[in-house]
Design a protein around this nucleic acid. Structure first.
Length: 927
RNA sequence: GCCUAGGUGGUGGAACUGGUAGACACGCAGGACUUAAAAUCCUGUUUCCGUUAAGGAAGUGCGGGUUCGAUUCCCGCCCUAGGUACCA
């Protein structure tokens, strides 16, 4: 029989499913290994060849780890709440659950075709009530907790209440809203229920507060910062505006520092770690107050260079700053109003792109310098952002380029404050020299200066050291239908949790998936949906990231009805050892997941500070579009004649996308092209060398560009094993690359070669029981070692090449030895599981599946006289060039005599080994 | 602007700690088998010089440097991709 991928792949996929081959046991005999893929949102378009890239890599690794004797957890599920299903529901009226179900079936079918070793018994779906029950439960814990800075962890709100009851608010060091009250224990006890709850809400980790949010009118919902890109929504690209609303938020900022420190504990790609660091944006600096005696208040600024305080020549407020109107003098009123008017008209986008123009206006008022007491002019300018720090800055033109430009433009003083500053052309922020013009700091260096100035400010009660973060608390509510209901009802306008035993709070049915006439979220349409028949439920739902911020725990114990995952399961599986997914989740999912993980740890549900130990970002697979060139008539109209790529410049043509599925190696299949559309039926071609060559371009893979390649089509033609090998062969896993089917024949040929090696001319399976030769063993053991080395460093593309080399060698040796095949198929199994299983069973193995086999150990004896000892090594360092430098011919050398001078020259005086290898030959070195 | 990654044949890419650059594959050219096609196999394929060959020279974005030796390390530039942006 020839290699028939179709029948044998179906056969083994069925075998694995029937035998639950990949079901992972919660046993303790074997060491555990948890390999996780970022679970997909099941979209209506199905999978294209780019989607499985990461899944294939993780599957190879999982299968490899199983062969290495690990109890591997490799699950898959669906992040099935989300916007597209809901948008579809709005258009068609079809319930999102139905759309979602259909999409999931399609996904499952496509995934199954690729032959993954997922443990499907652990499948989760975030939109399933048995799952979102626990998303709601975790929300309840977050609502019921506060962050204690003293213990540096989240604690149940009861501990805060008992503090209030015994000593009042004094001594509480919590992460909270800014407007918390000060009270004694007696005062607290005298508060009524409503006042107490209102106060506690300022401490809860999940809290409700009036805040400025990103409002997307087109989607009818608020969005988190990571869902907004340059002022437009990530999904759909609709404009987003700032709006004040009562909103649920998560106090993720409480964890800012731990999230930063945790990055040192994980093995993640550097760019990703860097992205999270920037997103968190820690700035160490100080808060400084500039008194404004006439208003009996202070302007508070945040600065990272408090040491430059004597260089302050003015203060700048954001145009939106609350003190602006009070500070503006009558003479300046026109100027300021005009300026505010102008900036408010600028869109967020304009304001960001226009960073070159210096603009601002003088309020007419002066503040007092906190130390010298001198008058400092107060300006407003849009380079100061209301949303960062305090919305006000102290301007030090000599040390900050923006302040410098501003000062130059408006002719404000520029004071040199360090003897090392060069400020003729631009600001100089260096910290090298000694301070000048700086009062008591004169002559000090940077370190001493900072300490001295902060001490002075604290003494004056006009400043203190302060750490500022760029990261904001995460908005948690969405005014949408297709998400988890928030398990909260309202009494007297205050939120209360429903009882735990009332979970899950099911998503109610609605007549339409649109906001109500009064502008309430779709859940406002649900009839008779009241808590205890009288209280209103929260009408917003949870954001998309709620369900994905803890799902790796659910896989550990997916059916548990008592808890989100049992203590035993969590203690055994701990955290994810290898996580594979795209880098687009750097500041969303991966941040929120770390946050919830830390929170759940604080409450004692598990012991892992970080959820994902090692993370790999698979590169995005882009589309590779093909083009045909339509000849234009003299009037510039399209004709029905198409010019081949190489000749197109000789004609007047216009490029058109052509379906990549009717193009092979950039050569257009003319018949299929004519059949593709009725108006092409009579198409004519201007060919080169008898062929029609298409042009190409790398673009995003999408339907509109006719460059979508469906894995099912590849599998139909070449098989799943070929697809798996080819996706790995395409290049380094982490690198973005265009999908190009041009090279796939190569790996397909490789599999056919493997097959033929152990089949005779008639196509019958045939192996020899003879003892393999040394050369045959060498070829085998080389691949055993190489595949293992490569897989451990996630270099899958090079090991596919190594397999090809190995099989080419075995083919040259005409090797069909049983002893070789037995081990070869095990090593090949992670990459090409179907053909390996088939050959394994043809070998007459009775233990059922190759998946239970053990990875072979390589024997170094076979490798000594090979490339591995290549070519000359002394202390593992000096190689071939030693001979070259001494002008010796490697082939002729039997013995090398080195003078002490040579040794010194080459070895840096280190001890010299007596033996070296030259092309596998051992020769002496005499010193 | 800043941060990060990268730049190697016609193409995808390999070279793991500084040690024969271009593995492997695609494509291309030539050949074998075949009535023919498909499939399969063999040979060649960085560039230039050399009629073929033997052989030689150059060569990993550009310019320098360290080293017996640099795709790899260092300095300065150019370009590409991703992220981020008046963050005080």
């Amino acid at each position: 029989m020839e290699y028939n991928h179709k029948s044998l792949e179906k056969k083994w996929q069925k075998f694995w499913a029937d035998h639950e081959t990949f079901k992972s046991a919660d046993t303790h005999e074997k060491p555990k290994y948890y390999v996780l893929d970022m679970f997909p949102y099941p979209s209506g378009a199905g999978l294209h060849v780019g989607h499985p890239l990461g899944y294939i890599a993780s599957d190879i690794f999982s299968r490899y780890k199983r062969l290495k004797g690990f109890n591997v957890l490799h699950p898959m599920g669906y992040d099935s709440f989300g916007l597209p299903a809901e948008q579809y529901a709005i258009q068609t009226g079809q319930h999102p659950a139905i759309t979602t179900e259909a999409n999931i079936s399609r996904y499952r079918e496509q995934l199954d075709n690729i032959g993954f070793s997922f443990d499907w018994s652990r499948e989760v779906r975030t939109s399933d009530p048995s799952y979102y029950k626990w998303s709601q439960w975790i929300f309840m814990q977050l609502f019921n907790s506060w962050y204690n800075n003293e213990s540096n962890k989240a604690e149940l709100i009861d501990t805060l209440v008992s503090c209030f009851e015994t000593v009042g608010s004094k001594g509480i060091n919590a992460v909270s809203d800014d407007d918390v009250l000060s009270f004694t224990a007696a005062e607290w006890l005298a508060f009524d229920e409503e006042k107490q709850q209102r106060e506690l809400l300022k401490y809860r980790i999940a809290y409700l507060r009036e805040s400025t949010v990103n409002w997307c009118a087109a989607l009818g919902t608020v969005l988190a910062n990571d869902e907004v890109i340059n002022g437009f929504s990530e999904r759909g690209g609709f404009p987003v505006e700032q709006k004040k609303m009562m909103q649920w938020s998560m106090r993720i900022t409480a964890y800012a520092d731990r999230m930063l420190q945790g990055l040192d504990l994980v093995d993640w790609p550097e760019p990703l770690v860097e992205m999270q660091r920037n997103w968190i944006g820690k700035s160490v600096g100080a808060l400084v107050k500039f008194p404004v005696p006439q208003l009996d208040t202070n302007i508070e600024v945040f600065t990272t260079r408090v040491d430059t305080i004597f260089g302050v020549s003015f203060v700048v407020l954001a145009p939106e700053h609350e003190l602006v109107s009070k500070l503006t003098t009558d003479e300046q009123q026109t100027d300021i109003s005009a300026y505010i008017d102008r900036t408010s008209k600028k869109s967020e986008l304009d304001r960001m792109s226009d960073t070159k123009t210096v603009s601002g206006a003088f309020t007419g008022s002066y503040a007092k310098h906190p130390i010298t007491g001198e008058d400092v002019a107060i300006w407003i300018a849009d380079y100061v952002l209301a949303s960062y720090g305090t919305g006000a800055v102290m301007a030090v033109p000599s040390g900050d380029q923006r302040d410098y430009l501003f000062a130059k433009h408006f002719n404000l003083p520029i004071v040199q404050i360090s003897d090392s500053q060069q400020i003729e052309e631009e600001a100089d922020p260096n910290k090298e020299g000694k301070y000048i013009n700086s009062d008591f700091m004169n002559g000090m260096n940077y370190q001493d200066g900072v300490t001295a100035v902060i001490a002075k400010l604290e003494e004056l009660k006009l400043g203190k050291a302060k750490i500022n973060y760029r990261m904001r608390d995460a908005i948690f509510g969405r005014q949408r239908y297709w998400g988890e209901p928030v398990p909260v009802y309202f009494k007297n306008g205050l939120p209360y949790l429903i009882k735990e035993e009332e979970l899950p709070l099911l998503l109610p049915e609605v007549d339409k998936y649109l906001p109500t006439e009064t502008g309430e979220p779709p859940l406002g349409r649900a009839e008779n949906w009241k808590y205890e028949d009288q209280y209103d439920y929260e009408l917003s739902t949870m954001p998309g990231w709620a369900g994905s911020s803890w799902y790796w725990f659910r896989y550990m114990d997916p059916q548990n009805e008592q808890t989100f995952a049992s203590k035993e399961a969590v203690d055994y599986w701990k955290s994810v050892d290898l996580y594979i997914g795209g880098s687009e989740h750097a500041t969303g999912h991966l941040l929120y997941s770390r946050f919830w993980n830390k929170f759940l740890k604080d409450l004692g549900f598990h012991n892992e500070e970080e959820p994902f130990k090692k993370l790999i970002n698979q590169g995005m697979i882009q589309g590779r579009s093909n083009f045909v060139y339509r000849l234009l008539s003299d009037e510039g109209k399209g004709t029905n004649t198409f010019v081949s790529y190489g000749l197109k410049d000789q004609y007047n043509t216009t490029p058109l996308h052509v379906d990549v599925n009717i193009v092979v190696n950039d050569i257009l299949n003319l018949e299929k092209f004519k059949a593709s559309r009725p108006d092409y039926a009579a198409a004519e071609f201007i060919l080169e060398d008898g062929k029609y060559i298409c042009g190409t371009e790398v673009e995003k893979m999408s339907k509109s560009k006719f460059n979508v390649v469906n894995p099912d089509d590849i599998i139909e033609t070449y098989g799943a094993d070929t697809l798996r090998l080819y996706e790995m062969f395409l290049g380094p896993l982490e690198q973005a690359k265009p999908w190009n089917t041009n090279g796939i024949e190569g790996v397909y040929k490789f599999l056919k070669k493997v097959w033929r090696l152990f089949h005779d001319a008639e196509g019958n399976f045939k192996v020899s029981n003879d003892e393999p030769t040394k050369a045959e063993y060498k070829a085998l053991h080389k691949i055993i070692k190489k595949a293992e080395d490569d897989i451990e460093r996630f270099s899958f593309n090079t090991s596919v090449s190594a397999f090809m080399i190995c099989v080419n060698e075995l083919t040259d040796l005409k090797c069909n030895k049983r002893a070789i095949l037995e081990q070869l198929v095990i090593v090949l199994q992670p990459y090409a599981p179907h053909i390996s299983e088939e050959l394994w069973s043809l070998l007459g193995k009775e233990d059922g599946s190759i998946s239970y086999a053990t990875y072979p150990t390589f024997v170094s004896d076979y490798l000594v006289e090979s490339e591995f000892a290549y070519p000359v090594s002394i202390n593992g360092k000096m190689k071939m060039n030693l001979l070259l430098a001494l002008d010796l011919d490697a082939k002729a050398v039997e013995e090398i005599v080195l003078s002490n001078e040579d040794v010194k020259r080459f070895m840096d005086g280190k001890a010299l080994k007596k033996l070296i290898f030259v092309k596998g030959k051992i020769i002496n070195i005499v010193v």
